[in-house]
Simulated assay, not measured.
Amino acid sequence: MAQILLLHSVLGLRPLERDLASRWQARGHDVALPDLYGGGFSDDYDTGFRLYEETGSEMVTARARRAHAAAPGAVLVGISMGTAVAARLWTPQTPGALMLCGVAPPISAPPPGMACAAHVARPDPFDEDGDIDDWAEALDAELHLYADIGHLFIDPNHPDHDAAAAEACLARADAFLDRF
C-alpha cells in the first residue's frame, strides 16, 4: 500500500483532511497529515488566505518539507492550496501526485514517470487564467473535471460540497492511490 503525504487547503487542517486520512488508512495506506499552519484553521476563504499570509509561505513550505523528509517516497496529495505545496516537494523518488480541488502552478517540472491526477471543478473560481487544461497537458496528467460545482466540492462541511461529485472524485482517488 501507499505511503501518503496529505497537504491541506488554504483553510488549514480541518475535518476534511482528517476524514480523508482515516479513509485511506482504513484501506491500508500510511498517511502523514502535517499541520502547515501550526493550529490555525477557518471555514471561509478570506480568513484562510489571511492564515496563509500570517504563517508565511516559507514556514508553510518548511513544515511540509519536514513532513516530507520523514516520508521521502510518499505519494503527494494536495487539496486546493496543498497542490502548490506538493509541487514544491516532488523529487525523482516521488511516485505520484494527486491534486484535489485545484492544480499546482508550474513551480517545477515533475519528475519523469511520476503519475499525476487532478480533480477540479469546472469552472473553478481559482483558475482565473483558465490554465487547468494547459497544466494537465504539460504534466501528462489524468484530468477529471466536475461541472457546475464549487471549488471545495469534496468537503461535506463546506458550502461548496457536492455529494455526487465528491463520491466520484474519491472513488477515483482511491483507485489512483491503490496503484502504489
Rank of each mutant, 00 (worst) to 15 (best):
E142M: 12
D127W: 11
I149R: 11
H119F: 14
A163D: 14
G150Y: 15
T91F: 04
A121P: 02
V31W: 00
S80Y: 02
E137T: 10
R66H: 09
L170D: 03
V75S: 01
W90R: 05
R18L: 05
A115T: 00
A164G: 00
G12Q: 02
I79Y: 14
L13C: 13
P110Y: 02
H8D: 01
G96S: 02
D127C: 13
A104Y: 01
H151Y: 08
I154K: 11
L51A: 05
E167K: 13
A69P: 06
G73A: 07
W24A: 05
D131H: 11
A74D: 06
Y45E: 14
V31N: 00
H8R: 01
P72N: 09
A138K: 12
I132F: 10
H161N: 13
A166D: 01
A84I: 05
A173L: 10
F176V: 01
T91H: 09
A32V: 03
L13P: 13
H144I: 07
P156G: 07
A26K: 11
I4N: 01
A115C: 04
A32I: 03
A117G: 10
A97W: 02
T61Q: 13
Y52F: 15
H161A: 09
L11W: 01
L20E: 01
D35N: 09
G40R: 12
L145E: 14
G39L: 11
A171I: 09
T83K: 08
A109I: 03
F126V: 13
L33S: 03
F153P: 03
G48K: 07
H144F: 12
Y37E: 08
A84W: 05
A173W: 08
M99Y: 15
F49K: 12
P15V: 05
D19R: 09
P111D: 04
D129T: 10
G39V: 11
A62H: 12
R88F: 06
D174L: 06
R179V: 02
A69S: 14
E53F: 10
S42A: 15
D30I: 08
D155S: 12
E167Y: 09
L89P: 07
P156E: 07
E58L: 11
A74T: 06
E53S: 11
I107D: 10
E142V: 14
G39H: 13
A97E: 11
I79G: 04
P15Q: 09
C101N: 13
D131Q: 12
N157H: 15
A175F: 06
L170C: 06
R27G: 07
Y37H: 15
G102T: 05
L16R: 00
M81K: 08
L145Q: 15
D44T: 08
L36M: 09
L51D: 03
R88T: 15
T91N: 14
Q93S: 07
I149S: 13
A166T: 02
S80T: 02
G39D: 13
A97L: 14
A70V: 02
